[in-house]
Amino acid sequence: MTPALFVQSAIIGVSLASIYILMALGLTLMFGMMHIINFAHGAVYMLGAFVIYYVFFQGGAPYFAAFVASMILLGIFGYLVERSIYRPIKGGIEPTLVALIALTTFLQAAGYPVFGQLDKHVPPVFPGTRNILGVGISIERLMIIPLAGALVIGLYLFINKTRLGAAMRAIEQDKEAAALQGVNVHVVNGLAFAVGFALAAASGALMAPIFKLDPMMGEQPLLKAFIIIILGGLGSIPGAILGGLMLGLIDSIIATALGAEPAFLLSFVFIILVLLFKPTGLFGYAP
C-alpha cells in the first residue's frame, strides 16, 4: 500500500465514519435510557430515506424541509411505537426485542409492495466532487461531516441543557428515584423513542441522495451501528463517536489494503475481543 493510497483511504474512512456515527447515536441513546436494543433502527433509517424520496424528489419540496419532515414524521412514529408497543409490554427487555424484530420484519416486507420492487434513487443535493490530496470526494459526502457534527452538538445540548434532557439523564441514572422526583417516566420514554427514531431518520435522510433506496437498505448500517456501540460502550455518546471513527477507518484502510471481507471479519473479531476483555466497551460503564 503506497502512502498516497493510505491517505486516500483514510479520508474515505472519515467520511464513512460520520455516516456510521449518525446511525449509532440514536441507538446508543435509546440503549442508555431504556436498556433496549432498537432492532427497528435500520427500518426507521429506511423510512427516513423514503420520506426524502417522496417529499423531496417526488413532491418537489426543498431538501432541508424534507429532511426536517423526515425527522418529525419518524419522531412521531417513535412516540407511537413507545405508546403502542413498549408501554403495553411494560418495558420487558426481551419481549420488547421480539416485538421490535417483528416490527422490522413487517416494515421491510411491506416496503416492497408499497415502495415498489426496483431500487429507488434520490438525485444528489450537493452535486460535484472536490479533490483532496489527490483523491476525488463528492461534496455530498463532505457535507455529511458538518451535518453529522451539527446533529451531535444538537443532541449534546438537548441532553445537557434542557429540562427534558435533564429528566432523561435522571431516568438513565435511576428510574425509581427520577419518578419519585416527579419525572413522568412515560413521557420521557416516549421522548427517547421519538429522539432515537428521529436520529435514525436523519441518517436515512442524509444517506438517501448518496446511496440507493430499497426496503432492506437499513440492515447493513444497523449492523455497523451495533458494532460501534458495542465497541464504544452501550449508552455512551462519546463512545459511539470514537467507535464510529475506528470502524470507519478499519473498513476503509483494511478494505483498501486487503479487500472488503477481511475488513468485515476483522471488525467482528475485534468486537468479540473487546467484549471478552472489556465487556462494557471502551467508554461503557457497568449497568
Binding site: 440503549f31 436498556h35 436494543i37 458494532i227 458495542i230 452501550l234 471479519l265 468479540i272 467484549l275 471478552l276
Partner: peptide, 28 residues
Amino acid sequence: YPSLRLRGVYFAMVTVAFVEVIRLIAQL
C-alpha cells in the same frame, strides 16, 4: 465461558456478533 461475565443485553450482543462471525467463516 468468557462471556458468562456479561449480563443481559451485553451477552445478547456477543451472540449477535457471533452469528455474523460464523457466517463469514463459512463464507470465506
